[in-house]
Simulated scan of single mutants.
Amino acid sequence: MKYLANELSQKENYKFLSGAIIPRPIAFVTTVSEEGVVNAAPFSFFNIVSSDPPVVSISVQRQNGEMKDTARNALANGELVIHIVSEDMVEDVNKTAASLPKNESELTETNFHLLEEENFTVPRIAEAKLKLAATVFNTLPIQNDAGETIADLILARIVQYDFNDEIVDQEKGYLLAEEIHPVSRLAGNDYAKLGETFVVTRPE
């Protein structure tokens, strides 16, 4: 079965992409509005871009052409915190995917608690085992063939890693995936846990 992408609808392209590019890590992002409201939302269009400098990408899809709170807030004050979603966070993270007025915080519907950080305007989620404080490195509006901006691609530069002790191999300096218990997105309403892992040594 073959399809030409430009002959498909946005929904059909989304279904194929979200079903094919799996599993996808989830960035649970907090930002702060100009009015001081803490916004929180999950994004699975998320990955590493560079390690020098340490940069990750997050694509924030627009809604009816309107920029979402996460993108608007990040662009306004230049800061965001990315949390990696663990199994015990999924239910509450899912609640923050609801669309609320920009003067309301999604966190009021959850059991999450905020941690304030000195010299950083955006608070962190206390329950997250892995937190990445970041600044906006660059942004790119993604436009469709009609010239309409349909997403905002944020390149975020990591400025601080904040890890729970149990997820770090103190001797080797590696993170322990089996202690993070990461959750990934599949298509539709489906998620996946970390399953069986195996090792393949790279050729020299």
Rank of each mutant, 00 (worst) to 15 (best):
F120N: 00
E12T: 15
A74S: 11
A97E: 02
P25A: 00
T96R: 01
E104P: 09
Y14V: 09
V32N: 00
A74K: 10
K68H: 13
N111M: 00
N13K: 15
E87H: 09
G65R: 08
V136K: 10
V93W: 02
H113W: 11
R24G: 05
L130G: 02
L115N: 11
H113Q: 14
R124G: 07
G36Q: 09
P53M: 14
T108Y: 00
S9G: 14
L4K: 15
V49P: 06
E148K: 07
A98D: 08
S44N: 03
I22P: 10
F137K: 08
H83W: 00
L17W: 06
E109N: 10
Q143G: 14
N64E: 10
A133Q: 13
V85C: 10
E127V: 00
A20V: 08
N119R: 02
P54G: 04
T108R: 14
N13Q: 15
K95Y: 06
R124F: 01
K131Q: 04
K68D: 04
T96C: 01
V38F: 05
A74V: 15
P54I: 01
D52T: 13
A134N: 06
V136Q: 06
G78E: 06
A74R: 07
I22S: 05
A128P: 12
A40S: 03
A76W: 05
K11A: 15
G36Y: 08
N47I: 09
V81L: 11
L140Y: 14
K129R: 13
T135V: 09
F43G: 05
L75N: 08
F112T: 12
K15E: 14
K129N: 11
E34G: 15
T30L: 09
I142N: 07
E127C: 04
S18M: 13
K129I: 01
G36D: 13
E7C: 05
N111Y: 00
N13E: 12
L114P: 07
K131D: 03
I26E: 08
P42V: 01
V93Q: 02
K68Y: 02
N64T: 03
N77P: 05
P53L: 11
T149D: 08
T96M: 01
E66Q: 09
Q63W: 06
